[in-house]
């Protein structure tokens, strides 16, 4: 029996929110296609996490819990996914379009001699077949494609798909997968610990971004402060990253990340075509810029024309006040 396999991803001691979103889309498409859905949870000490899926309508869970996975890089996970796919005769495998999900999708593509669909933002069933939409050119263009091979491998963009909230009693099946030494050729030699886990721009519901108008790295504490108060991730324009003010991990745009948060706040960002491509699918866009002609205002739902160094402190004040309500 064919089915859809959902590959879950965990962060520290819990499953990532995006995994519930991916499961939700798999359940909806599975219903239309008449296919069962199973989720795969893998790692070390992840048994308890698997139970969380019960709230999200997933009734079948494959579990691989092995100590060797504690510091493992991508290769062993690809083998586990392949084993689970064989177990359920999966015709579809859905992953998160996270860095790891994309890496694994490439491994699986080579293994099954097909292309994976990266960063899908919409899926529907037409004439009994799955049709996939995904942005290309960093969102300047939307591609609609029909898969011609099986299995269909797709990674789904975070923050786009809705989880299915429904309580079930899942059947959990532990898979026995032999992970041979050759799968551990890439080793983690060092991990620098950071004092505070940063929210990733790819998964954040709110992003506060700064650009050239911030005039220097010393002023980004304003961006960080507002982001903290809103529970947001901090982002940056290419200009701010190329100037060395911010790390590339924060860059939004064609040579950075393409994001779709609920709220995107652009501060001192003029709105180059590459930046707009990367954030235009945000649900609500706010722009603060002193130039009323800045292209960012053409995509912003709400704009304030003004000096970021005056407006940002006022926004921080307002965010503090609204936090108290």
């Amino acid at each position: 029996m064919a089915g859809i396999l959902v590959v879950c991803e965990n962060k520290e001691n819990q499953l990532r929110k995006v995994s519930f979103e991916v499961a939700g889309e798999a359940l909806r498409r599975g219903k239309e296609l008449g296919l069962p859905v199973a989720a795969l949870v893998m790692g070390h000490g992840v048994k308890e996490q698997a139970g969380e899926l019960a709230k999200y309508g997933v009734s079948k869970i494959y579990l691989v819990d092995q100590p060797s996975l504690q510091h493992a890089y991508a290769q062993p996970y690809a083998k586990i996914i392949t084993t689970a796919m064989e177990q359920m005769q999966a015709g579809y495998v859905f992953l998160a379009a996270s860095p790891r999900g994309k890496t694994l999708a490439g491994f699986l593509g080579a293994r099954f001699a097909t292309s994976s669909f990266t960063d899908c933002t919409n899926m529907y069933v037409q004439n009994g077949k799955l049709v996939i939409q995904r942005p290309i050119y960093a969102g300047k263009v939307i591609l609609t494609a029909s898969p011609l091979k099986t299995p269909v491998i797709a990674s789904l963009r975070p923050n786009i798909f809705k989880p299915e909230m429904s309580q079930v009693s899942p059947q959990i099946e532990e898979l026995n997968v032999t992970l041979e030494e050759s799968l551990f050729q890439v080793k983690v030699a060092e991990t620098s610990k950071v004092a505070k886990q940063k929210l990733d721009v790819n998964e954040a519901a709110i992003i506060v971004s700064g650009g050239r108008g911030m005039k220097g790295p010393e002023h980004f504490h304003l961006i960080e402060q507002l982001a903290d108060l809103l529970g947001a991730a901090t982002g940056a324009s290419r200009a701010a990253v190329d100037a060395g003010w911010r790390p590339h991990a924060e860059q939004v745009g064609q040579t950075g990340k393409t994001v779709s948060p609920q709220l995107y706040v652009a501060c001192g960002i003029s709105g180059a075509i590459q930046h707009l491509a990367g954030m235009r699918t945000s649900r609500v866009i706010v722009a603060v810029n002193k130039d009323p002609e800045a292209p960012i205002f053409q995509v912003a739902d709400y704009g304030i024309v003004g000096d970021v160094f005056e407006v940002l402190p006022k926004m921080i004040e307002a965010a503090k006040a609204s936090g108290k309500n």
Binding site: I142, T144, Q298, I304
Partner: peptide, 30 residues
């Protein structure tokens, strides 16, 4: 591995509104 059904430009965002100028616009924005 796939057939291209179509390529299209993303829907244009509706022209937004300028809430106002400077710090005075912040309460209305929130």
């Amino acid at each position: 591995s796939f057939q291209v059904e179509k390529l299209e430009l993303p829907p244009a965002r509706k022209g937004g509104k300028i809430v106002g100028k400077g710090v005075d616009a912040v309460p209305e924005l929130f």
